[in-house]
Design a protein around this nucleic acid. Structure first.
Lengths: 212, 212
DNA sequence: TCGCTACCGTACCGTACGTTACGGTTCTCG
DNA sequence: CGAGAACCGTAACGTACGGTACGGTAGCGA
């Protein structure tokens, strides 16, 4: 299963599954076949069974999200804040997207009961993947003397908390939370400032920015 | 439906549903009837249909969680930190409990599709309820000159983020996250210290405490 | 004791859906 | 052009499960 290449047609089928998920419609094999204009026999031939189809869909979406690492450019306080803010805004945009919400709902509803652990895939490609990209940034900040912390993981988790707060859970539970680009940008900047206040070695950001 | 009193027997039935949820077994009407030693006919008579049963279960669990408000005692910096830390530890204990995880998974899997909004009930009794208890504490701290912020809601959400980080989502996705009482106590204290560093008016907590 | 109510246990019904089977069409390759 | 593969559309099968019906029993008031 892993390492398999997906043909264009197969990718189109998985996109159809994603479309169904986002639309909130039931993920039956009939619905997928109809939406993708393919036969059920083909679905079973390509993906084995329903769980295989859903797992392939989750992996397919995960493979599409890969986005830019930070460029280890000049590491001063301003660049650090900018990079943190950009990561935060990017992550907030992702977790508030209908696709991410639908995918996480699916993975959570399968967690525990099913043996095909969609939750593990989502965790590996969401939470862990962003960690692997942010932690080098934090380490670079520490090496540059801008940040001070003992454990990178702990610092990263604090950052995640400041950025996301309870947004993801509320969205998953159906809370009508409006995250406009402006709101996201403001929250990202606030989180970056708060993080630097907690872990920075220089003077903290002005209070006016914090208490907005 | 709301305002109805539950008989002892009915409460026992709902506890049986909770037991099934926590055990990860399927929530079929047959399974509930068997576990609760009652007839399906009775289930339908009492709760209308399956959604009514699940909604009653969520409400029943929510009614059991109500826990102590803070006592507006002497409001100095130490007492504030202690109260914040206690709230944080309490909340972490709740969201990491098997019952809470199972309940949130159920509510999330129903969000969007079903019209019986379990997510709304969970939100109202979880996220919003703790907010209504913590915010007066924050306001008291501000009135006492210990804290400084413009918007209580924003400050509260920062606190929530510092306490929970991504713990809840990871647990919902099936991450094997071990939250021992010692870990919870440490995380609660760290979150309280960080919050006071961000929003306190006095000198920040020593760096050694922050970077643990 | 008679009737009534509430409830248990079980059998039953209808539907939804995962899965399989099959006929028909298009494409590829020799 | 002929054979086979790949695939579409649809029909069919089996089961799981929500919901209903019904017989049997215990308690209770008259």
């Amino acid at each position: 299963m892993p390492g398999e290449e997906l043909s264009e047609r197969q990718q189109a089928v998985l996109d159809a599954v994603l479309a169904l998920m986002v639309a909130g419609e039931a993920l039956t094999m009939n619905a997928v076949a109809r939406r993708a204009s393919c036969s059920k026999e083909t679905l079973y031939k390509w993906f084995g069974d329903r769980d295989g189809l859903l797992a392939a869909t989750v992996r397919w979406q995960a493979s599409k999200v890969r986005a830019g690492n930070f460029d280890r450019q000049s590491m001063d306080a301003g660049a650090l804040r900018e990079s943190l803010s950009r990561f935060a805004a990017n992550w907030l945009t992702v977790i508030s997207s209908p696709t991410s919400i639908a995918l996480n709902r699916l993975a959570i509803s399968h967690a525990g009961s099913h043996e095909t652990n969609l939750g593990g895939i989502v965790l590996a490609n969401g939470r862990l993947a962003i960690g692997e990209r942010v932690k080098p940034l934090l380490d670079a900040g520490r090496e540059a003397g801008i940040l001070a912390f003992d454990d990178t993981e702990t610092a990263f988790r604090t950052f995640i908390g400041l950025v996301g707060r309870d947004v993801q859970v509320r969205l998953l539970l159906g809370d009508r939370l409006k995250l406009s680009p402006a709101t996201i940008a403001a929250d990202a900047g606030r989180a970056a400032d708060q993080f630097i206040t907690l872990y920075g070695t220089g003077r903290p950001a002005p209070a006016a920015t914090l208490n907005a």
